[in-house]
Design a protein around this nucleic acid. Structure first.
Lengths: 204, 204, 204, 204
DNA sequence: ACCTAAGCGAGACGGTACGTCTCGTCTTGCG
DNA sequence: CGCAAGACGAGACGTACCGTCTCGCTTAGGT
């Protein structure tokens, strides 16, 4: 890790030092993973990154902004698959998201971010923006399915996206993101096929 | 030198004084509604309740325990309607829950509690237990519909309950609990009827 | 120690229970010797004595009163000798006082009491009263010497008493109460014989 | 959110702000004079000085250190006179010391410091060092008298100094520092001339 | 033989202060 | 001008005691 070098970093002149930013983000992530949201403090991040607090405040307006940045650079390779089956696509999305949350610690980071958003306006805005962006991508996935004729005309892709992400968030917040294929499939099938029996559908 | 202000509460002997508990919970609720989770502090609660800090710590181990107690005594008869139509029942549930969250401030309290659960183990456990209890009641609602023949045999009521509560939570966490009937109906319809077009169903 | 019995003490009816008083004074002394004045608290005394705090406050108005009582019942056998020589008498007094302070822990207790008197009016009064009583006894010793013709007519015994006790107190407060015969003798001789040389006296 | 009151002191960078130190010491002195040792608290000092508690703890390890600093900057030109008569010199010393203690409030501060030294090791050490330094200066005064032939050869100036300061301390601790010339003269004369009658001296 | 009155241990109460922590702001001095 | 460093005012944290209060008990002494 860049920030673990013995010697202190210096300014590189009148411009942002990317090593500092790197060190700060790494330190923030490490703190978050070790101490969790409760023990996370700008003070500790500065200490671990061998950075001055003003340097942090110069580039991130508040704790929430830092948190978001930490989550942002972490999130990778969530699969927005395209198997030709919307049900399979949604299942694979949940499965890879949960795996990512579990295995990289990204789940803890995102949980922290959601928590922060409950007490910080800026974080709240960022969370909404982020979730909309996420849902937009998933809605696009649904839209493709719709164009394939897999989804009924009157369905708003945004609603589907919201239901799926809601499910994921709640699992995260209640610490139920183990790799339970059956549960994920059941949730997705419920959204895709609905809960009505054949008989009710026939009447439609 | 206990200064004789207008009306000081006293000890009532070697047992808990319910007036103090009442004053503390009221003060905590008021603080939460006024300042939000970020500005919530035991210090302020003690001040407002005219209570000593040790009195609070004597009965509530931490902020989370107090928060949970505050939410607990606040939660009131959310409607688990029984109109004969599961779609209508779920819609009415969401509508009354959102109204409760909006109008009593219960939403802010619950948001705070969810946030706290992300940094406090005890709160996390309480949150899970609470959410399971909630889902159990909604699952019972779905079960009734199933017995009426409104719901397909293979559907697990717990999944439906989880999807609906997840939707509600996420709306709460992203501050989207306005009284938007259309959105609520759309979400519920999606769960009830699924997103497949008639043609796909026919093939089934 | 009385208070160390396993079973709890009870009231013995509508009168003071001497066992409780005993237990409290013992506990207070023990606390003082173990923790010193800084760590001395009514709370801890009550705990150690298995006594209720009100029982303490019923019989001792404040910390200072308790402190004084503890010192009072401890002070024993300070020698007010009568060897026929005032110089020897004063020396023996200092020697036995210092020994008592050193060996019984009484010094620590008295130091605590002096300290308390600097912040508590009642303790201050008690200290003055106590010191006057002490000086009265020593003045009586000087008076006897005066009657023997050992002390000049114009000398006020109270002054001598005050000088000697002052010396002792200061040694105590600066933790210099080791058994240094030479120092004690020098101080006493100074008071008895004065510091003038023979030549100066002749001129008188 | 640093609230913009009339005139807030700020950090002056990564070094100690002397204005803060000044404000804290002044506030501490004022508190001590108003409330006395018993009512003296770091909390109140911080409040009065408009300083943060950590700022105080950063520079003074404990209450005792602060107390000592307050007394140190207060102590001013106690008269070590040189009238040619040791008796007069000692009398003037006592008189000016008592006046200083009475009129500047320095007495209360020093009493507090002595009290603190009874429960705090560091303060105790500082008190001993301080008292030795004081006695060294007075011993020098006695030494001058000795060189003038005013004091007998076998007298140790240190003993005289200790007796005089002991007398002063005890008067302070028992709140008897009024301007009583007769008492002071009597004490000094006792030390200078001794208590023996002429007859006894003749025999010597 | 009952009744009242007081003492007892226990422990909760409203408070104050402790000493530590983090917040977000500020300034210095080097590069 | 950016940077590491770190002091600053502010104020919350959770703990220790303070001195007061009431409880439920036990017993002595007056009736």
């Amino acid at each position: 890790m860049t920030h673990d070098k013995e010697k202190t970093r210096r300014s590189i002149g009148a411009k942002r030092n990317p090593e500092s930013a790197e060190a700060i983000l790494s330190a923030a992530k490490a703190e978050l993973l070790e101490k969790g949201y409760g023990g996370f403090s700008i003070e500790a991040v500065a200490r671990r990154a061998h950075a001055g607090k003003p340097t942090i405040y110069r580039w991130w307006a508040n704790k929430a902004a830092l948190l978001l940045d930490v989550y942002d650079r972490q999130k990778r390779d969530i699969v927005y698959a395209d198997t030709g089956s919307i049900e399979e696509d949604l299942f694979l999305f949940l499965k890879s998201l949960f795996r990512y949350w579990r295995e990289t610690g990204g789940g803890n980071i995102f949980r922290s971010f959601i928590a922060e958003a409950q007490s910080d306006g800026a974080a709240a805005d960022a969370l909404v923006a982020y979730s909309l962006e996420r849902q937009r991508r998933m809605a696009a996935m649904v839209q493709r399915a719709k164009e394939r004729g897999e989804v009924a005309e009157e369905i708003d892709p945004a609603i589907v996206a919201k239901l799926v992400t809601s499910y994921a968030w709640t699992c995260l917040l209640t610490r139920q993101i183990e790799d339970d294929d059956a549960a994920m499939r059941a949730a997705v099938r419920c959204i895709v096929q609905g809960i009505l029996p054949e008989s009710a559908r026939a009447e439609k």
